[in-house]
Amino acid sequence: MYAVQYIAVIIVLALMVYVLGKYGRNELDWQDLVFWEALLFIMLVVSLKPVEISTTIRKILGLGRGLDALFVVAIGLSYLLLFRLYIAIDKAEREITELTRQIAIEFQEIREMLKKLEKD
């Protein structure tokens, strides 16, 4: 194993412990825990056997070099993560919009009640 592989293994294991700690402090849902741990496990396997895995992916995708295959897979995973982030942001925006509407409706009702009380 090369020195960079040792470094990668240490970093990935540290990230796995970090994610478990986040879950332990209830900062992550179990779905997020499974997703991130699976992704980190894949990264751990790739860091342990980079040549074999890149060669296999290269043959499956029909690319010229193994490193190209790893870049293609990494870019694909990056797009999946971006899509997941987009979905989460869109959901949060919709919830904020709905809460704003509810607050505006309640505020208007309160103003109407105050006007009625002032008249009496």
Rank of each mutant, 00 (worst) to 15 (best):
R25W: 12
G62C: 00
V45H: 07
G66N: 03
L20H: 06
E106P: 05
A8P: 01
E106D: 09
L20V: 10
M113R: 15
L114F: 03
E112H: 12
G66T: 00
F71Q: 10
T97A: 15
L20W: 04
E118W: 11
I110Y: 05
A8K: 00
E37T: 10
W36G: 03
I57D: 01
A3T: 09
K91A: 13
L13F: 02
V19L: 01
L99P: 10
L61K: 02
L114Q: 10
I110N: 01
M1T: 07
D120Q: 14
V45R: 07
E118Q: 11
T100Q: 15
I53E: 04
L85Y: 01
V46Y: 08
T55W: 05
L39N: 02
L81V: 04
L63K: 04
V45W: 07
E109Q: 15
Q108H: 13
M113E: 15
V34D: 00
G24I: 08
I57G: 00
F71N: 11
L114T: 05
I103K: 12
D120I: 14
N26E: 13
D32F: 06
A104S: 06
F83G: 06
F35G: 01
T100C: 09
L82P: 07
T100M: 14
A14D: 01
L81P: 00
V9D: 05
Y79W: 08
G66I: 03
L82R: 10
S54M: 09
E37W: 02
F71S: 12
F83S: 09
R65S: 14
Y23G: 01
I105L: 12
A104V: 08
V34P: 03
V45D: 06
V73L: 04
L117I: 03
N26C: 09
R111S: 15
A69I: 02
L40V: 02
L82E: 07
Y18W: 10
G64F: 10
I60T: 07
L15S: 07
Y6F: 09
I103S: 09
E27L: 10
I10T: 05
G64S: 14
D29Q: 09
V51G: 01
V9H: 03
S47A: 13
I57N: 03
G64Y: 11
I11Y: 06
E27Y: 07
L77P: 02
I57W: 02
T97F: 12
S78M: 13
V73A: 06
Y2F: 11
L117K: 04
K22Y: 08
A3F: 11
I89F: 11
W36K: 02
Q102P: 02
F35W: 04
L70D: 08
E52S: 04
K49E: 13
M43S: 11
